[in-house]
Amino acid sequence: MTSETRTDVLRYTAFSPDPAGGNPAGVVLDASALDPAGMLAVAAEVGYSETAFVTAQDTAGRRFTLRYFSPLAEVDFCGHATVATAVALAQRIGPGELVFDTAAGDIPVLTAADDQGVLRATLTSVPTRSRPAEDAELDAALTALGWQRTDLDPALPPHVAFGGVQHLVLAAADRARLADLAYDFDALAAVMRRYGWTTLQLVWRETPTRFHARDPFPVGGVVEDPATGAAAAAFGGYLRTLGLVPETGTVVIRQGEDMGRPSTLTLHIDPTDPRVRVSGQAVTLAQR
């Protein structure tokens, strides 16, 4: 009997209303009997970029302790697994407000059904921050990616952005550069471990309110994430730091298109508030 068959693992895809899109996540709603090694074993067996584990809840049943594991390690925060867990809970206890206690801090989440009845979750990140990338950081990342500085958009400078975990933000000069992603997996993983980055947030700006993104995740044992809520929150902080928040405060990120798993992440950014709201739908996948 495998660790997964001993544990009730739900499967959802986040940031898409279509099971063929979005980013799959495992969700364990009762992980109170699992230790960290057990959670890591389940995550490795599930094989998704992240599996979320509910380890405790309050007596009112709207506040939960949440831990996240990739197939290789625990991470402090994961946006798409948060959305998946929130929708899984909303299906069982009803839509409304939830709070997740995570290693990164408290994450409030509002769940509601849209006009088609698909549940949407809107998480509020921990305070975001962003700083210019140092030359050594940038050069190491570009070498592992096989990119040149001339491949970057000079209007969107490289930054290290934080929205619960750290991400290197690199803006491609054109859509073709973003589409052509073939990097050295082991070399990039080593660079990311050296600097403490969870993913690289590679973006291309179509308009001031619409971006396309790709997120390599080799430190989690995954080549690429099709939707990355934590990186989206960090990117919202990046835009705020650079003074690039549109008047509406709303930015849409399209991710996963080049992987065949299109995803839509909607950011709500207040220029005066370091917290960023990230919104998306989630639906169930076939359970195994």
Rank of each mutant, 00 (worst) to 15 (best):
D30F: 14
R11G: 07
T248M: 13
L72V: 10
T264F: 04
A176L: 08
P262N: 01
T272I: 11
D106A: 13
Y183D: 03
G22R: 05
M1G: 12
V46F: 07
I269W: 10
H167C: 04
E45M: 08
V109W: 08
A84I: 01
P19E: 10
Y12R: 01
I107Q: 02
V251K: 01
Q91N: 11
V9S: 03
L10Y: 15
L145W: 08
I253W: 02
D184K: 12
A84T: 02
V222R: 00
A179W: 05
R62A: 15
D106V: 08
Y68W: 06
R62D: 15
I269R: 09
V219K: 04
A88Q: 08
G61P: 02
S125M: 06
G249A: 15
E4R: 14
V219P: 09
T82P: 04
T55Q: 11
A31T: 10
P127L: 06
F162Q: 01
A43M: 02
V9Y: 01
R214T: 07
A73Y: 03
Y195V: 05
D153F: 00
V160L: 14
R214L: 08
G22S: 07
F64H: 03
F217N: 00
V126S: 01
P246H: 14
T122C: 13
A113D: 13
A81F: 14
G229D: 04
T122S: 14
T228M: 11
W197M: 07
G164E: 05
P218A: 05
Q287P: 10
E137Q: 15
P157F: 04
P262V: 04
G256L: 00
F162H: 12
R194C: 05
T198G: 03
A60Y: 09
F217M: 11
L72H: 12
R62F: 15
T207L: 05
D225P: 10
L123E: 06
Y195Q: 08
V109C: 12
A213H: 09
P95V: 14
V28Q: 10
A73W: 04
A286R: 09
D270H: 03
A213Q: 14
L202Q: 10
V252E: 12
P24Y: 08
A176P: 02
A173D: 12
T111H: 06
L34T: 11
G237C: 13
D30P: 03
G94F: 11
V87Y: 00
Y48V: 07
D35V: 14
V83H: 02
E247L: 07
A113H: 06
V42E: 07
E247I: 03
V126H: 01
T55F: 15
P208H: 12
D153S: 00
D114C: 05
G47P: 02
T13S: 12
